[in-house]
């Protein structure tokens, strides 16, 4: 998923090869990850797609099934991965992930501790941010979940950047070997305040902690705990609103109401208006209009950031 050197970066010359991971794009809300396999087939409502037809095509190509249905084959990215990974737990989404990485100042070379791993959605983006020379140590107390996550990181070829550990960080704290090594620590725990003292010990001076919590009581408790060893304690909420775009056709005819109330947005000028004949739009024209989507994720969680005190 992430280039290990310049030759692995996506390029106009790069072709899909046997063994590649591709994201099969049906629609913006329907994608899946597929490992290309010379003899494999993909079957969906659009028909049967032979992997062998894909090999040799550029990423981003439109490929067809036996019955002329089509899909796009995209190169995997952490964003696409977040849309296709299996939800073993609630995952973090784009807006939170982006803000967390920016606000924790995670850059190439950083050492980041994460707990819990969950479905590995954030982990994948953390790996991208620390690449090529940093490392993400991620922990989950759930053995099976950690094993699945490891499998995913094998599949997405992130194993050299991510180490998955099984540990009850909330109960036992982070392993002592990470003392003073972390540039940033991310917590997504039901009782983050229990892990905060240990997180503080792992952080370098001025290193940044972030705790993600859905409920305000968790934030209140965490902030109380943070006060003793951290500064710059700030809590945010980040959401995304998406817009629907459509083409609105207008009618320009004067109906039997004397053109009184015409449908949007055929703009006629008042005869009384003088000097501005600007936004005249030709009759029977199409206009692109956008409005917010009706439903949205109304809340994911609160993000509390703090810097480890610089002593």
């Amino acid at each position: 998923m992430l280039p290990g050197d310049p030759s692995q970066a996506i390029s106009l010359q790069r072709r899909i090869r046997d063994g590649d991971l591709v994201i099969v794009y049906e629609r913006h809300d329907n994608m899946k990850a597929v490992k290309v396999n010379e003899g494999g087939v993909l079957q969906n409502r659009f028909g049967v797609f032979k992997h062998s037809d894909w090999i040799g095509k550029p990423f981003g190509s439109k490929v067809f099934s036996h019955k002329k249905g089509f899909i796009y084959l995209l190169a995997p990215t952490p964003e696409l991965w977040t849309l296709v990974l299996s939800h073993r737990t609630q995952i973090l989404y784009l807006a939170d992930i982006s803000f967390v990485i920016m606000y924790m100042e995670i850059v190439p070379g950083c050492v980041v501790l994460e707990c819990g791993t969950g479905s590995g959605s954030l982990t994948t983006s953390l790996a991208r941010a620390v690449a090529p020379s940093g490392h993400v140590y991620t922990f989950d107390f759930h053995e099976q979940r950690a094993a699945y996550a490891r499998e995913d990181f094998e599949l997405t070829q992130l194993s050299s950047l991510v180490t998955v550990g099984v540990a009850d960080i909330q109960g036992d704290g982070f392993p002592a070997k990470f003392l003073g090594t972390a540039d940033s620590v991310f917590l997504d725990l039901p009782q983050p305040w229990l892990a905060i003292p240990s997180a503080g010990k792992m952080l370098k001076p001025d290193g940044i902690l972030c705790s993600f919590s859905p409920c305000i009581e968790q934030v209140q408790h965490s902030c109380e705990t943070l006060k003793s060893k951290f500064t710059d304690i700030r809590t945010f909420e980040v959401l995304l609103r998406t817009y629907e775009v459509k083409e609105a056709r207008t009618e320009a005819s004067c109906g039997d109401d004397g053109g009184f109330l015409r449908p949007l947005p055929c703009k006629r000028r008042p005869q009384s208006a003088g000097d501005h004949d600007a936004d005249e739009v030709s009759s029977d024209s199409a206009v692109v209009v956008a409005k917010p989507a009706a439903e949205a994720r109304g809340h994911t969680g609160y993000l509390t950031f703090a810097r480890h005190q610089c002593l």
């Binding site: 409920c215 949205a296 109304g298 809340h299 609160y302």
Partner: peptide
């Protein structure tokens, strides 16, 4: 407009909202 769930230890804005 935003609605909240207010419950002991489980207070947060509702997870689904009318965005518009």
């Amino acid at each position: 407009l935003r609605e909240y769930q207010v419950l002991p230890s489980r207070t947060h804005p509702c997870m689904q909202m009318s965005a518009f």
